[in-house]
Amino acid sequence: MTDFSDLVVARSQVVIRTNIYTDLAAEEVTIEGLQEESLLRALPEVFSRLVFALEADRVNLTYAGFPSGWVQLTSAPAWGELGAEDFFQVIRDPALPTLGKMRITASTGASSSTIQPGDLVVRYGAGSAQKLYVNTEGFAPVPGSYVDVAMTAQEAGAAGNIGNGATLYLVTAYPGLSVTNPAITGTQSWITRRGKDAETLVSLKQRCDEKWADLSLEVSSQRFARIIRDAFEAAGETNPITRIYVDDTNPDGPGSVWVYMAREGSTATAEDVALVDAYVVPRWRTGGGPFKSYAASTLTITVSGTIKGPANSDSALEQASAALQALAPTYAIGEAVVYLEQIRTALMTGVSGAVNVVLSAPIADTSIPAGSIVAFSIGSITVEP
Rank of each mutant, 00 (worst) to 15 (best):
P385S: 14
A10N: 09
A78T: 15
A159N: 07
S113Q: 12
E384I: 14
V357H: 09
I91R: 10
N19P: 05
L327R: 13
T108W: 10
G176M: 14
Q130D: 02
P44R: 12
R207E: 08
Y133E: 05
P97G: 01
I228V: 06
S352G: 11
P329E: 00
D252L: 02
T306W: 02
R92L: 11
G265W: 02
F88Q: 07
E81S: 11
I381F: 06
F87E: 14
D214S: 15
E233P: 11
G350P: 03
V281T: 14
A225S: 08
L324R: 09
W284T: 00
T98V: 12
N312C: 10
W190H: 01
Y279S: 03
S203W: 09
R194K: 12
L132K: 08
C208W: 10
A336C: 07
T345K: 14
V351L: 07
A268F: 06
P182G: 05
I301T: 00
P310Q: 05
P143N: 00
Y146K: 05
I368C: 10
G109A: 04
V179P: 06
P67T: 04
F232E: 01
S203N: 15
A274V: 13
V179E: 01
V358W: 03
P94C: 02
A64E: 03
S189M: 00
G287K: 07
D93Q: 06
W190G: 01
I241T: 03
L327K: 03
M348G: 15
V134T: 15
L50D: 07
T192F: 04
P117I: 15
I104H: 09
P94E: 00
S111L: 03
K131I: 13
A268P: 04
V357L: 12
A328K: 07
M102H: 06
G100Y: 00
G255T: 04
Q188M: 14
S304N: 04
S321F: 03
D6C: 03
L215R: 13
R226K: 14
F47I: 04
S297A: 15
I228Q: 02
L61T: 15
Y124V: 08
Y339H: 15
L317P: 09
M1S: 15
P240F: 07
Y124E: 04
V15N: 08
D6E: 14
T152C: 10
R17A: 07
A129C: 10
D248P: 01
L54G: 11
A25Q: 10
V357A: 08
V90M: 12
E384P: 07
T167V: 12
L168N: 02
M151R: 08
L340G: 15
Q116H: 07
Y245P: 03
A235C: 01
L347R: 08
V46K: 08
Q188R: 13
A159H: 11
W70N: 04
V15M: 11
S313Q: 09
L340F: 13
R229I: 09
L327I: 02
D93W: 09
A140S: 15
